[in-house]
C-alpha cells in the first residue's frame, strides 16, 4: 500500500496508521534538519515501506 495523508485517518488498520505516523515523523525531523524536499519524501517513503514490510533497516545503521 502506498502511503498517503489519508493513511493517518481513514485506515482501519492500526499498524498502517502507526507506520504512517512513524514515517511522517522521520521525514519531518529530516526537514527540520534541513534536508531537501525530495529527501524528506524519500525518507518518509523509506520508513513507511520498511515498517509495512517488517524490514529491520536499523541494523544497517548501527555500525555508523
Amino acid at each position: 500500500m502506498t502511503l498517503s495523508l489519508s493513511s493517518f485517518n481513514t485506515s482501519d488498520n492500526i499498524e498502517i496508521r502507526d507506520c504512517a505516523a512513524q514515517a511522517w515523523e522521520a521525514g519531518s525531523e529530516a526537514e527540520n534538519m534541513g534536508a531537501p524536499p525530495s529527501d524528506v519524501y524519500a525518507l518518509t517513503d523509506f520508513v513507511y515501506t520498511a515498517c509495512e514490510s517488517g524490514t529491520d533497516y536499523m541494523f544497517l545503521l548501527m555500525n555508523f
Binding site: E29, V47, F64
Partner: peptide
C-alpha cells in the same frame, strides 16, 4: 548529529561510506 533522528543516522553513514 542527533543520535535519535533517523536522517542523522544516514548522515553518519554517509560520512563513513
Amino acid at each position: 548529529i542527533p543520535e535519535q533522528i533517523l536522517y542523522g543516522k544516514f548522515l553518519k553513514a554517509a560520512k563513513k561510506i
